[in-house]
């Protein structure tokens, strides 16, 4: 038993790099730093470029606004660049609809399957809606099963 735990620990430790959780999602430490630096450079860089070229081609009072726009363009560019450079570190699992047995889920939520089904059947509006959505059968099955 002990060896098993140790071996899995070893595996996870070896298999990949570490991640950091920033604002609820995992990131690679070096990427996030680079990304912030790239984004700051591009946005403020764009602003500087605007400040130096617009005075010759635009009205004086619009220079600041146009420069700001160029700065935004820079930050959007940085977003695209960073999205290309740094791939998301997320694991996306596409679930099957019936991973757990329906009854177990209901039991887990402390709901009596039979009672739930009765409530649905006795309420014409809800019953009709679930019929149209094609999900009434699932509820029905578990409701009838627990009846036995």
């Amino acid at each position: 038993m002990e060896t098993k735990v140790a071996s899995t620990e070893k595996q996870t430790g070896k298999s990949n790099e570490t991640y950091l959780e920033v604002l609820g999602d995992t990131v690679v430490p070096s990427s996030i730093l680079l990304s912030v630096v790239i984004s700051m450079t591009f946005s403020i860089g764009g602003y500087f470029v605007g400040k130096s070229i617009f005075p010759s081609i635009a009205e004086p009072k619009m220079v600041a606004s146009y420069s700001l726009l160029l700065g935004i363009a820079g930050s959007v560019l940085a977003l695209i660049l960073c999205a290309k450079l740094f791939k998301p570190s997320r694991i996306l699992k596409e679930e099957e609809s019936s991973v757990e047995s329906f009854q177990e889920i209901l039991r887990d939520m402390q709901v009596d399957a039979k009672e739930e089904y009765q409530l649905i059947v006795n309420d014409p509006v809800t019953r009709k809606e679930m019929e149209e959505l094609g999900i009434l059968d699932t509820f029905k099955k578990s409701g009838v099963q627990s009846d036995k």
Partner: peptide, 19 residues
């Protein structure tokens, strides 16, 4: 989920704020 990394998003907001 597959294309836009959190890195890019956080980077952009810090960049925009500084701008």
């Amino acid at each position: 989920m597959k294309n836009i990394s959190q890195e890019a998003i956080v980077g952009m907001f810090v960049g925009l704020a500084c701008l």
